[in-house]
Design a protein around this nucleic acid. Structure first.
Lengths: 166, 166, 166, 166
DNA sequence: TTTT
DNA sequence: TTTT
């Protein structure tokens, strides 16, 4: 369908350490459980109330899997963008069941750590996809030259800085 | 949890006319089925492939219910913002089941028609919430004076146009 | 124009304490300077590079102004949703100049603190708009009954939990 | 800065045909002028009011440039995701000026046509980046195998359909 | 300068 | 079940 958008944006905390699996051909898949929560004051009772929502997140993007494995753990706060997908599966009794997940895969998926607990390298993953193996994060300066590795020097955006804006 | 975000953005088409119900105390609830779809060319076979995803959307916001009822029908294209919620329910055999829905309720929910097929009044719903009954759409100039109906004239943003920006 | 969307989502840090002003009729206006930053490894030189972008944020929503005043300071990390607006103004020599700002005003604007440095009450502002004076944050359970203060008890979403999903 | 997000989402109409230029080394750059508009009823006068906002959009992503060139024209309605960038330039009198633009470049940028007036091939651009030259749109099934052209057959997401969800 |  |  022309002109479709399917986007989920979450900021929340991991309810457990990331769960890492591998496909038969060796690619990683990471599952996360993320909690988002809202609180408000009830208009009638004036009590404070809170509601927590749990989300199933599945990461197929290799670069983002790497981030998840290396930096995230139970309690980590993350920002992510993915898309909604509902999967059909069969329970033990052979009945059809459905599971809706937030899938991070391909372009337009993002995963960013929002707290500093990684200990590790910093928490800025802008080049996590270096080596060209992942679209989830590429150089912000990349303009799609795409020659893939041995690209000639490419002038940055500032090329245009000497022009009067259109 | 401080600092949570739970947001879904969809652009898609209604697979059926909106389904309108009422709560016991008379408030409207509208259910939508929305299809989003992606297509791409398979890298190996070079065939064109397509994947359609179906979303359950539930509208509690009164103003947005009104829009849905009045303007949307099977095939309509919409833009919406809501949040993910997973509901527990019991099937006939008493087993627990889960249904994940995109809920439009309260602030930060939006519903906008993107095609002109409404026949109706236009498709611009910016004041659909007028009368103050809905937060999903209020005046874009509203700055929260909130005196609710008989507000004194409020100067627009241009108040500040005579100042040098900070 | 039917079907327009104008939305900005930022996660970044304040470059300075919030700047609070008042309009002639006493409403607050808060200006923020927010930095977002990306880093990546240059494909040619293999050096780490970083680019910081500075954003002008203007808050008209009263509830969100209150949050900014009470909890934010230089260095705070925030999540916000607003919209782009370009303002015309005149410099000292009478020339027209333009300033593009991210405006938080009315429905569909949000401001959430992402770090705990507030010392203060927590950083969850879901009811900051309580008293009904702000649309930026209302009860997540609000369905627009809108009777504004003395609302009768309203059943929560769970009304529908006993139904089989549509 | 770890954990930054800089995202703009617009749905609006082109005020003029796309303006196409080329960099010195031959890469395309497309400029768009996009109008977004809100309308609402004034609470005091009860008059209908409208405010239009004009946005400067600059596309560096090659695949998205191609889409803009081929399918968009004055009046076209588009959905886009990009990021805010403010550029410094000098006017004729040598004074510093600033221009804030919505930049579509690299990962996490999107451009989708929302009306059917293209006449052309359809308006679904999911594979516009095929050939691997653009990150703006890649296969939704892409999981970053990234072998770039002669990839072996890669099992789709359904690999996991035979598993009970985690 | 778009659109409704 | 939509749309292109």
């Amino acid at each position: 369908m022309a002109g479709s958008v399917n986007k989920v944006i979450l900021i929340g905390n991991l309810g457990a350490d990331p769960e890492v699996r591998r496909t038969q051909d060796g690619r990683p898949v990471v599952n996360l459980r993320i909690a988002t929560s809202e609180s408000w004051r009830d208009r009638n009772t004036n009590e404070r109330r809170e509601r927590t929502e749990w989300h199933r997140v599945v990461i197929f993007s290799e670069g983002l899997c790497r981030i998840a494995e290396q930096y995230l753990k139970k309690g980590s706060k993350v920002y992510l963008e993915g898309q909604l997908q509902t999967r059909e599966w069969e329970d033990q009794s052979g009945q059809k069941r459905y599971s809706t997940e937030v899938v991070l895969q391909g372009f337009n998926s993002t995963l960013t750590m929002l707290d500093g607990r990684s200990g590790g390298g910093g928490g800025d993953f802008a080049d996590s996809g270096s080596g060209g193996s992942d679209f989830g994060r590429s150089s912000p300066m990349d303009r799609g030259g795409g020659s893939g590795g041995n690209a000639p020097s490419r002038p940055a955006r500032n090329d245009f800085d000497d022009e009067i804006p259109f």
